[in-house]
């Protein structure tokens, strides 16, 4: 296949960026999207131009590093996958593909398509944990039975890979899906209930401070989330937050 790529190029955080057009040919439909970008980079490199920087690591959809806005959608047009799992057979010969970084004020661009998602980490520092010491003097694992239904829901919430696609897809650049996934995971487990009040208040405060937008329930995040994290989690967080606020 032959394609036209419109890629966001930006030298670093202090320079302005712009969309640059590239032509690329002989793409096999079996290639992954990132293999295609590797190929482009190899060509740029051979021409003496600087390759396009983009985040990636595991290339199997679990580390959450890859983060491209492809044709206006995070992780591209396919559902329930990350960019590294996207394959070129999704596109047609002659297509034009826009490739942009995930955009949010809380995700400033570092270079080209690489953004800084440390705001996510800071939200987790504010409360994304259960305060238990790691020295091993805990009770036996089976001393805390967990209802399977809750355990499964907690697991589903816990599968979030922290990619930020929810923010990228949201017209408000809201991080509600990401934050609510962590809040829900712990709120559903007996181990996590003890600190539930402080956790949700602290995490939401940090989320707001980072400058993410407000959720207006468009649902784009749920659809674009590669792990299918459910909007139920946002509702649960709203509940948790309001009851925590009322408790003080």
């Amino acid at each position: 296949m032959n394609l036209t790529l419109k890629i966001w190029r930006q030298k670093d955080a202090n320079h302005k960026g712009k969309i640059v057009n590239y032509k690329i040919s002989d793409i096999s439909p079996d290639m992954s999207f990132l293999d295609m970008l590797d190929m482009l980079n190899e060509q740029l490199n051979n021409k003496g131009e600087e390759p396009v920087s983009f985040d990636h690591d595991c290339r199997e959809g679990i580390c959450g590093s890859c983060s491209l806005q492809i044709n206006g959608e995070p992780h591209g047009p396919d559902r329930m996958i990350t960019t590294c799992q996207l394959h070129m057979r999704t596109f047609k010969d002659g297509d034009t593909i826009y490739i942009e970084p995930f955009r949010a004020k809380a995700f400033p661009v570092i270079k080209d398509l690489v953004v800084d998602r440390s705001s996510f980490d800071r939200i987790q520092h504010a409360g994304g944990f259960i305060s238990v010491n790691t020295s091993g003097n805990t009770i036996d694992a089976n001393a805390i039975p967990v209802n399977k239904h809750d355990a499964d829901k907690a697991f589903d919430a816990a599968t979030c890979i922290g990619c930020g696609a929810c923010v990228a897809a949201c017209k408000n650049a809201s991080a509600m899906l990401f934050v609510s996934a962590k809040v829900s995971q712990f709120a559903l487990l007996p181990q996590g209930k003890v600190e539930a009040t402080d956790r949700v208040l602290n995490m939401v405060r940090q989320m707001d401070e980072e400058g993410f937008g407000n959720c207006s329930n468009t649902g784009a995040c749920e659809i674009e989330c590669p792990k299918g994290i459910s909007l139920e989690n946002i509702a649960r967080m709203n509940r948790e937050y309001m009851s925590a606020s009322l408790k003080g």
Binding site: F129, I130, V132, T134, G136, T138, I139, D140, A141, N142, I144, P145, V146, N147, K148, A151, A154, F155, A158, Q185, F186, L189, Q191, G192
Partner: peptide, 21 residues
């Protein structure tokens, strides 16, 4: 000990219907 530790931290291991691991 690892399993005890991880459960205490909220790692959602697979469970049976009785609620045990």
């Amino acid at each position: 000990n690892i399993i005890d530790q991880c459960v205490a931290q909220g790692v959602p291991f697979a469970r049976e219907y009785g609620g045990l691991l």
